[in-house]
Amino acid sequence: MTLLNPTTETGRTALDRIREAPDRALLAFDFDGTLAPIVPDPRDSRAHPGAVPALRALADRVRAVAVVTGRPAAVAVEYGGLDAVPGITVLGQYGRERWADGVLTVPEPPPGVAAVREALPGLLERVGAPDGTWIEDKHHALAVHTRRTADPEAALDLLRAPLAELAEQTGLAVEPGRMVIELRPPGVDKGAALTGLVAETGAQAVLYAGDDLGDLAAYDAVEQLHEQGVAGFKLCSGSAEVTELAKRADLVVDGPSGVVAFLEELGAALGG
């Protein structure tokens, strides 16, 4: 049974265009939950073992391959082994950071990030955050994880309002995710990052694969680009934790292993 079988007409059109003219196609991916399985501690995250080989097989056949992630770009490159993919561009921190050809470009974080860094430990103590709640410092953003608590959903519910208030006070944006709430600089998202990549590469077709709420902005961008004549394909790395993307996707596959299987089949179709 083939995985190259979108459930929507726009998806079929986009996939046909990618197959007919891969040299004009951009393939872009989220990292955690899409190319890498979700794990209890994100510091232990590594790419699915088939991800880099599948991307390598496609890299010489398409216009461009990219990863767009909330992680720092250098961390995604390290954890994914992405430097083994020829010509790949990695946009980190939702597009604030860029890694390409071994060169990392990182702007200074806004002052609100330092204020949140200082305030978060006391805030978690005041609201009674349960054992297992922990802070991930991404330099340009801070994420509060609840996956290791006894009741991750209840912990998220407890933290949503206080973290939203702290974000408002410090001029940051709130980015919800799978058992995590991130406070990050406003004005950047995966949609803007993806749109920029399409303009930069001149791609006439774009595939974006994601799994989490932060990827909805990239889905929005794919749909907006479609109205401008750029064929768009939305691939969802499906999970029981987040279902919003599946409702809008052209194709849903079973987590990172499904994404890899899709890429392997696409590579074979393109002569990989």
Rank of each mutant, 00 (worst) to 15 (best):
T133L: 00
V180Y: 03
L172H: 00
W99P: 03
M179I: 02
P107V: 00
E125C: 06
L124V: 03
V198E: 09
A115C: 08
M179F: 11
Y94A: 01
E165P: 12
G177C: 03
A150S: 15
A154P: 06
L104W: 13
V198S: 02
A205N: 02
L172Y: 04
G102M: 12
R184M: 14
L207I: 00
P110C: 13
V144T: 07
G177Q: 04
G191V: 05
G80K: 01
I135P: 00
A150H: 05
Y208Q: 11
R117A: 14
K190I: 01
A167Y: 12
Q204S: 13
V90D: 12
G81F: 06
E78G: 06
T170W: 13
P130T: 10
A143V: 03
V188W: 03
V85L: 05
V144C: 08
V188S: 11
L158Q: 12
A119G: 04
E136D: 06
A114Y: 06
A193V: 11
G132H: 04
A205H: 03
P107L: 08
E153M: 12
E168K: 14
D151W: 11
L197S: 06
A203W: 03
G122N: 12
G87M: 08
V113P: 14
V116A: 15
V206F: 09
A173E: 12
T133V: 04
P110R: 14
A192C: 05
E97P: 00
V180I: 04
V116P: 10
G81Y: 11
Y79V: 07
L156S: 15
I135H: 01
A100E: 09
K138C: 05
G177E: 00
E200S: 10
G128N: 10
P109S: 09
G81H: 13
V198W: 10
E175C: 05
V90Q: 04
R184D: 08
L183M: 08
V144L: 03
D137L: 07
T105Y: 05
